[in-house]
Amino acid sequence: MRYIVIGAGAVGGTIGARLHQGGHDVLLVARGAHYEALRERGLRLITPDSDQVLDIPAADGPVPTREGDVLILATKSQDTVAALDPWPRHLPVVCAQNGVANERSALRRFERVYGMCVWLPALHTEPGVVAGYGWPRSGLLHVGCYPCGADEPAKQIATDLDRSHFVALTTPEVMRWKYGKLLSNLANAVEALCGPAPGAETVLAHARAEGTAVLEEAGIPYSTPREERLLRGDRVEIRPIGGEARAGGSSWQSLARGSGSIEADYLNGEIVLLGRELGMPTPVNEVLQREANRFARERRPPGSMTVEELTGLIAARSAAGSR
């Protein structure tokens, strides 16, 4: 197999780098300054116990493909359709992304689609550089067919990842794991807006309670944090790099880079969508979705809203919905 990693940022860069270190054929696909840095200097992968520059082939768009190629899509969800559109439709696609909408979008265009539930603490804010904070392995990855099942290619992908510094498992219920991760990712907008401020955990608890209630009403199964912790055990811990903890998650990083977009429509927005379909109010996630998008659009820095301001906006939305 050749693994073509589309979106070589924090997650895609770490996956591509570890597969390359494991002896696999890898191509990284990136854009702009990040692509130029990869092409000119290679990918610098920093981990708690290493700092290496890896000479991995890179491209800024589609390349001629061959038998055995696998696309690993690691872009943000809002970029899924545009990122996949130029690639041949016969290739298998692995959606190594947060959210639960990507696989269905890919399946409209590609015959073979796999979900990957990603627990991978990493950081990408500088062109050509990715930091992976997982130790001693870089992350926990579940791989399975979409919408369900686990065929031989899924098992091979998981085996290759497991032998390349990840804890990787094949599962026939990958979307259950991805819905569980969705609930965890509701925190992304809170962190992006307020940072690690006191009181933010209360907002997150309310957002998760809304999300859990919606999934229960919809009859959608989801994994639990306890299941994830048991699987990670002491095989994947978050360690500082150079004495510094990771600055923030994927949404925080989007604001820090001033990218102009953020994943909130596919995280908090997924709960809002389900709530509207079921006739259930979701004011906490609605405000988080709206404000995260506003911050991205206005290129506001992460952590520049107070918890008190956010709580006030949620209270106002809740009151408006109850009239």
Rank of each mutant, 00 (worst) to 15 (best):
L27Q: 05
L84E: 02
D265G: 13
P92T: 02
G132P: 08
R18Y: 05
I271T: 13
A197K: 09
M1I: 12
G180P: 10
L54M: 07
I15K: 02
P88K: 00
F295K: 02
G312A: 09
V100Y: 11
D79M: 05
G68H: 01
P283T: 14
P147Q: 11
A245T: 15
V214E: 00
V190K: 07
D234K: 07
E237P: 01
A150C: 14
R18E: 14
G243N: 03
L278C: 11
V129P: 08
P240W: 06
T159K: 13
C117S: 15
G248W: 00
A264V: 06
S251F: 13
V94D: 00
L313A: 13
E111M: 01
V167E: 13
A168Q: 13
Q52M: 12
Q253S: 13
A319N: 08
L274F: 08
H165T: 15
P281S: 14
A245H: 11
S77Y: 06
P57E: 11
G132H: 03
D51Q: 06
S250I: 13
E244Y: 05
G68T: 05
V130I: 11
G149K: 06
P121L: 06
G32W: 10
L107H: 15
L54R: 14
L186I: 04
G199L: 07
D151L: 05
K181F: 06
A17R: 03
P48E: 02
V53Y: 08
G115S: 05
M1N: 11
L204G: 14
V93Q: 04
R229H: 09
A209C: 05
R176E: 14
L19I: 06
P121I: 09
